[in-house]
Amino acid sequence: MLTQRIAQQSLRRLAASQPGLASQSMAFKKSAAPALIMGSSLQARPVTTQPIKPSDSYEILVAQRKNRPSSPHLAIYKWQIPWILSITNRITGSVLSGAFYIFGSAYLVAPLFGWHLDSASMAAAFGAWPVAAKVLTKFAFSVPFTFHSFNGIRHFVWDSGKAFKNATVIKTGWAVMGLTGVSSLALALLL
């Protein structure tokens, strides 16, 4: 215990007095501590470098990447509900936020371009569509919304530390899929 304290104190003194030498000696911690206690100095080997052009460094990087093994994760693993729903949750979140920003921006600039995006114009245009087109459009909008909502509740439960066992994750995943299908269909069929 005493030798460890002496080694720590000598390393601290060295770091305070000579920061460059201390950083070199940290790599050789086990061999450096006895040398510092005894008072002998450490040998350091200088590193030699060569200046290269950025284009040459990029070519070296490309050559190194060609030798890297690629992970066959998509080819060898069995598709599982947790990671399928995780990917789908990210996609639906991106679709919903992208649609929100695009429509919001279009709504703000509509008066400048003479577009009619007010509620009355949109309701009249949507009301003129055939019933099948209305149902399909509402279903296309309701699926990402309901899925992302139900899966978000599932993630909030996980954040509280509950329902995180493998069997429960799989059951809640299928429950989210079922609730998404039923609620999306119900929302699409509301006329």
Score class of each variant (00 low, 15 high):
residue 147 F to M: 04
residue 80 Q to I: 02
residue 97 S to L: 08
residue 104 G to P: 08
residue 161 G to I: 00
residue 37 I to F: 12
residue 153 I to A: 15
residue 106 A to N: 14
residue 144 P to L: 00
residue 66 K to Q: 08
residue 46 P to K: 07
residue 97 S to C: 04
residue 139 F to G: 06
residue 83 W to C: 11
residue 188 A to K: 00
residue 159 D to R: 09
residue 51 P to T: 06
residue 42 L to F: 15
residue 89 N to R: 10
residue 104 G to D: 01
residue 184 S to W: 00
residue 172 T to Y: 07
residue 88 T to I: 01
residue 178 G to I: 06
residue 44 A to G: 03
residue 46 P to N: 06
residue 97 S to G: 12
residue 137 T to G: 12
residue 140 A to H: 14
residue 81 I to Y: 05
residue 120 A to F: 01
residue 127 G to I: 11
residue 5 R to I: 13
residue 101 Y to V: 05
residue 145 F to N: 06
residue 136 L to W: 08
residue 14 L to Y: 08
residue 188 A to I: 01
residue 146 T to K: 13
residue 11 L to H: 10
residue 184 S to Y: 08
residue 110 A to L: 04
residue 11 L to N: 07
residue 11 L to E: 15
residue 53 K to F: 03
residue 149 S to A: 08
residue 16 A to E: 11
residue 176 V to R: 05
residue 34 P to T: 04
residue 70 S to G: 02
residue 187 L to G: 00
residue 88 T to A: 10
residue 183 S to D: 13
residue 35 A to Q: 15
residue 83 W to Y: 14
residue 148 H to Y: 11
residue 186 A to M: 11
residue 38 M to F: 01
residue 41 S to Y: 14
residue 101 Y to N: 00
residue 100 F to V: 05
residue 125 A to W: 10
residue 146 T to D: 13
residue 16 A to K: 13
residue 75 A to N: 11
residue 87 I to M: 13
residue 26 M to S: 09
residue 56 D to I: 06
residue 90 R to T: 12
residue 64 Q to T: 04
residue 41 S to L: 13
residue 84 I to L: 03
residue 157 V to D: 08
residue 14 L to H: 10
residue 173 G to Y: 08
residue 78 K to R: 07
residue 109 V to G: 04
residue 120 A to R: 08
residue 132 A to C: 03
residue 69 P to A: 03
residue 4 Q to E: 15
residue 32 A to C: 04
residue 186 A to Q: 13
residue 68 R to T: 02
residue 122 M to G: 03
residue 76 I to K: 09
residue 148 H to I: 00
residue 151 N to A: 07
residue 7 A to E: 13
residue 86 S to W: 06
residue 138 K to F: 02
residue 92 T to R: 01
residue 156 F to A: 04
residue 150 F to E: 05
residue 111 P to I: 03
residue 187 L to I: 00
residue 154 R to F: 09
residue 34 P to S: 02
residue 169 V to D: 12
residue 55 S to Q: 15
residue 155 H to M: 07
residue 60 I to T: 06
residue 111 P to M: 02
residue 126 F to R: 11
residue 87 I to D: 15
residue 8 Q to L: 07
residue 11 L to Y: 15
residue 155 H to K: 07
residue 39 G to N: 09
residue 22 A to E: 10
residue 18 Q to G: 04
residue 79 W to T: 10
residue 143 V to D: 05
residue 128 A to R: 04
residue 130 P to M: 01
residue 159 D to K: 10
